[in-house]
Amino acid sequence: MEDAQGLARRFGELLAQLRFPEAFELLADDGIYTVIGTTPASGVYHGPKDLIARLVPLLSDFVEPPAVRFEEPIVQGDRAVLLGSGRGVGPTGPYDQPYYAFVMRAAGGRLVEVIEFMDTMMLQSAVFGEQAAH
């Protein structure tokens, strides 16, 4: 059974390889995945099937899929934090995320909670075509 460090490391490796469905399958069936903010991608997803059905299609239209890199996970007990960055070209503009943070909790060899933090305005402008008001 994989612990928090192994799950976080594998999650990051799969995301870096753009293997989103496989990464999201690490979430327990009753796990919760939250994308912060108020973008069309933001919200709470329940289990891997919901995540794959609703979030993966939003990630499939990139002109240049983001090249994502992650640092070694920070782990304490059943919790892990995975820091990273990504750069690509979305369907409506450049996508430059200098800081991602995934805060995770593991139990029973699966991820039971993931909260994804990022610059949501960058996501909004690169993927959904809306600019921030100044």
Rank of each mutant, 00 (worst) to 15 (best):
M121G: 05
K49L: 09
E116W: 02
A41W: 05
E25Q: 15
E72A: 11
G47T: 14
G90D: 05
E25P: 02
T39W: 06
L51P: 09
L26H: 01
L51C: 12
T120F: 00
E64T: 12
P40W: 07
S125V: 04
A8P: 08
R105I: 06
V68K: 03
D78S: 14
Q97E: 14
V56E: 07
P65F: 04
G77Q: 10
H46P: 04
A67D: 06
D119M: 03
T38L: 11
G6F: 05
A8Q: 08
G129H: 11
R9A: 13
A67K: 15
V35Y: 01
Y45R: 09
V103P: 02
E130P: 02
S85I: 00
V63D: 05
V103D: 10
Y100M: 00
R19N: 15
G93L: 03
V89M: 10
A80K: 03
L83N: 04
Y99N: 08
S85P: 02
L123M: 10
G12Y: 00
P65S: 03
A28D: 15
G88L: 00
R69A: 04
E113N: 10
S125T: 15
A53N: 12
F24G: 05
A41F: 06
E2Y: 11
L83H: 11
P98T: 10
A28K: 07
V35G: 02
T120L: 01
A107S: 15
R110L: 09
I32V: 14
K49D: 14
S125Y: 06
L82D: 07
Y95E: 04
D29W: 05
E116D: 14
E25V: 00
V127K: 00
P21W: 06
A133L: 13
V81Y: 14
F128P: 13
Q5K: 12
F128C: 10
P66A: 15
G31D: 05
P94F: 00
G88F: 01
A28P: 06
L18F: 06
E116G: 07
D50Q: 09
Y95T: 06
Y100P: 00
L14R: 00
P73G: 07
Y95G: 12
F70Q: 05
D96E: 11
E71T: 08
V112P: 05
Q124R: 13
I74G: 12
T34R: 13
L15P: 03
E72Y: 00
H134Y: 09
A4H: 12
G108L: 11
K49N: 13
V68M: 13
S42K: 10
R10E: 14
E130K: 14
T39N: 09
F11Q: 04
E113Y: 08
P48T: 03
Q17A: 15
A126G: 06
L51G: 13
V103Q: 10
H134C: 12
E71I: 00
Y99T: 10
L7Y: 13
G47Q: 07
M118K: 05
P57I: 04
R87C: 05
D96I: 01
A16K: 04
R105V: 11
A67I: 05
Q76G: 10
T39I: 08
A53D: 15
G37Q: 06
A53M: 04
A41Q: 12
D119R: 08
V75R: 08
L15S: 04
D50E: 09
M121F: 12
L55W: 01
L123I: 10
D50L: 08
V127Y: 01
Y45K: 07
Q5M: 13
R10V: 01
F70G: 04
P48Q: 01
G88V: 04
V81T: 08
H46Q: 14
L123Y: 05
Y95V: 02
V81H: 13
D78P: 12
